[in-house]
């Protein structure tokens, strides 16, 4: 009954947001493909969607893509985990204790704002081309969003809530467990979205400079070999991973923090 009372919505009305988004992506790909009907195509300098698609299928079937991704995944996991373990506590303490914040904020801000990838060659010199060197580059790039978001999360906590817990007899430990951590978690998850992007840059840059395997190395090598369809196929794989990770975090955020919906 109530369905009939509501204005009828067609399929396109209901899914307008998603459809329009996909339409833009499809048009971009179509325009790229169509452009070479008018512009002469030289596969040494550029590639086009159908060739990239075929190259991607080749790389998947041969197992090369998966192998390179697996090689790159290990340092990413180490570096990213270390960034969480170091960044979150550091950020919470910086937010909670003013002297610590005053001391560390300028130097952290300088590092966060700098193009730290410039240090990549140095890191490679110190730590080599293996897992540890790459993990350190990823750590250095992805730790700062955790530090700054955890800090912002602590500072955004309403001091009234601290007083509420104190007045009901809560200890310092209760303040952390009942107020600080629940208040900061959503900020950390938001920081993770930014950190994922920076971490992926870290893995590519690390492998561009010096590596013998991994997805970044594959992109660089295919570029050098003028196998641009394969190069773009690898870039596409990285893009898909980046989107899946950041959107996955966004989805997890909504599921894990229902109380954020109203904020």
């Amino acid at each position: 009954m109530s369905d009939e009372a509501a204005p009828r919505q067609s399929f396109t009305d209901k899914h307008r947001k998603v459809l329009l988004g996909f339409l833009a992506v499809a048009m971009f790909i179509a325009a790229w493909q169509a452009a070479f009907l008018f512009v002469p195509f030289n596969k040494l300098f550029i590639s086009k969607p159908d060739l990239i698609w075929n190259a991607l299928i080749d790389l998947i079937v041969s197992g090369d893509l998966l192998r390179d991704l697996a090689v790159s995944a290990a340092p990413f996991l180490y570096g990213f985990s270390a960034a969480v373990i170091v960044g979150v506590p550091l950020g919470v303490v910086m937010g909670w204790r003013a002297p610590v914040r005053y001391t560390l904020d300028p130097i952290m801000t300088i590092f966060y704002a700098s193009p730290l990838v410039a240090l990549a060659p140095l890191v490679i010199v110190f730590f080599g081309v293996g897992v540890s060197g790459k993990a350190i580059i990823i750590f250095v790039l992805s730790v700062f969003p955790f530090i700054f978001n955890a800090q912002a999360g602590v500072r955004a906590i309403d001091p009234l809530l601290i007083n509420v817990v104190r007045s009901l007899g809560g200890s310092e430990r209760d303040l952390y467990l009942k107020v600080l951590i629940p208040g900061v978690l959503p900020y950390i998850v938001a920081g993770a979205r930014i950190a994922v992007g920076r971490g992926l840059i870290g893995i590519l840059v690390g492998e561009f400079f010096a590596a013998s395997e991994g997805i970044g190395y594959a992109i660089a090598r295919f570029g050098d070999l003028f196998a641009l369809d394969k190069m773009f196929a690898c870039i596409l794989a990285i893009m898909v991973i980046a989107v899946v990770l950041t959107e996955g975090i966004r989805w997890a955020e909504r599921a894990a923090f229902p109380w954020r919906v109203g904020q």
Binding site: L160, S167, L168, K178
Partner: peptide, 12 residues
């Protein structure tokens, strides 16, 4: 125990 003007409920 106190009842606060701005409620002071923990949003989570």
């Amino acid at each position: 125990a106190m009842v606060f003007q701005e409620f002071g409920l923990l949003p989570w």
